[in-house]
Amino acid sequence: MWLRWISLSSAALLLQACALPTTTETIPLPFQALGNEPGWSVVISPDHQATITLDYGEQQLDLLLPPAQVTYAGTHYRAEYQDQPFALDIIFNTCSDTMSDTSYPYETRLEILGKQYQGCGRPAP
């Protein structure tokens, strides 16, 4: 009987330790996501307007972002752009730019116009 009580108590403690946090961090605005090969960036203004630059500046797109989905892992935007999925994930994980060896406080992933990009992020300068 005693062992059963210990195992149930231990299980309850483990479940509490594995529970997702109830508080979430939000990204600072304005915010900049950027990456290499090919060069790209997204700048999010305080009014949630995104300026997206792709292919080393050859394409520039503007998109009003929907409300963000904030989770324990980061901030996520989902929408459609030109009838295709748009996704921007800003993940609370440090990131290193492999070309400049610069360290950033966020990891970023962008999906737009059928292409996927990975990079880093920071409060916009």
Rank of each mutant, 00 (worst) to 15 (best):
L3T: 09
A19Y: 01
Q32W: 05
T22P: 11
T108F: 02
Q118K: 11
L15V: 15
T22H: 15
Q69N: 13
N93Y: 01
V43G: 03
L64A: 15
P28C: 00
W5Q: 14
D55Q: 04
I44W: 00
H48V: 13
L15N: 13
S100W: 00
G39E: 01
S41K: 03
L14Y: 08
H76Q: 13
Y81N: 07
I112M: 09
W40D: 00
S10Q: 10
C120W: 01
S7K: 07
L88V: 07
H48Y: 15
Q59C: 00
A73H: 03
V70M: 11
S96V: 15
F31S: 06
P28N: 05
G121Q: 02
Q82R: 15
Q49T: 12
I90P: 10
L3E: 10
T26H: 12
V43C: 06
G74A: 03
G35W: 01
L64T: 14
A79Y: 06
Y117I: 04
T75Q: 12
Y81D: 07
I90V: 15
D55S: 00
E111H: 13
Q82L: 13
Q32A: 12
A12H: 04
W5H: 13
Y104P: 01
D83S: 13
D47F: 07
D101L: 08
A73V: 01
C18H: 00
Q16R: 08
Q49A: 14
T23P: 01
A11P: 01
C120G: 05
T24V: 14
L13Y: 12
D47A: 11
T94C: 06
Y77F: 15
M1N: 09
Q82D: 15
S41P: 02
H76F: 15
A11I: 09
Q69I: 13
G119L: 00
L110C: 05
T71H: 12
Q49M: 14
